[in-house]
Amino acid sequence: MNFTTRKAIPLVLLLLLGSVFYALFAGYTPDETLNRSASYYASQTVQDTGAQNVVTAIIVTYRGLDTLGEVTVLFLTAAIVGLVLAHSKAPKGRSGSGFLPSGELLTTGTRMLVPVILLFGAYVFLNGHLTPGGGFQGGAIVASAMLLMLLSDSAERFSHRLISRIESSAGLTYVILGLLGMLFAGGFLDNRILPLGSFGSILSAGAIPLIYALIGLKVGAEFSSILTSLEATEDSQ
């Protein structure tokens, strides 16, 4: 295979794919009204779940099983990343970040900012049923606090064992809450095991804030463990 055919094959493939995309693009007209499932979600969410944010209601309640599967996929990813990189653990006390050693400013700033960031993450995932946000966004914010600690070398206080404890207990409680939904309400992961409360207040929407907080903790722990295993392992000579 010579040089020009090697260059030409990707271009031909992309030209074909691009013509498919162009046909899709040219023939697309946006709908005037919602389709049936979406209009069901729009009109019944408040009555069924008591949540203000329809996206949250779909993720946590209507398609809760999908979210459980997704969190499991994320757990598997974290486990595989840890396994693939397991042979090059850092010796104790050595920084693995590969950046310059952290200065006084970064260390002090981390000490001040990490609690605030954790608080903000908790705010985001506890208000997921009222405002934009929720477990995945809040989990990413919690993981960014972990990232800051990794950058300033103070991550030893936040041990890997604690991360895995948080991760596994949050996952277990999530599944138990789902099973409680089968026992006391309409089905697996039904949020009506707790009273729906008054619409629009923080303690409303049944079990949604609880479940989303658990998802947030689990996602945050999984992202943190991916970050630590990609960062903290050092070439062992």
């Binding site: 944010n53 996206v55 949250t56 970040s97 590969g98 985001v124 934009p132 946000g133 929720g134 995945f136 966004q137 990413a140 914010i141 993981a143 960014s144 990232l147 992202f223 991916i226 970050l227 990609l230 960062e231």
Partner: peptide
């Protein structure tokens, strides 16, 4: 919701994974 997720995960954490 999607905008928050993309800003936090897509542009924040992914970039740092690459840099690590």
């Amino acid at each position: 919701d999607v905008a928050m997720t993309e800003a936090a995960i897509g542009s924040g954490l992914t970039t740092f994974l690459f840099f690590f």
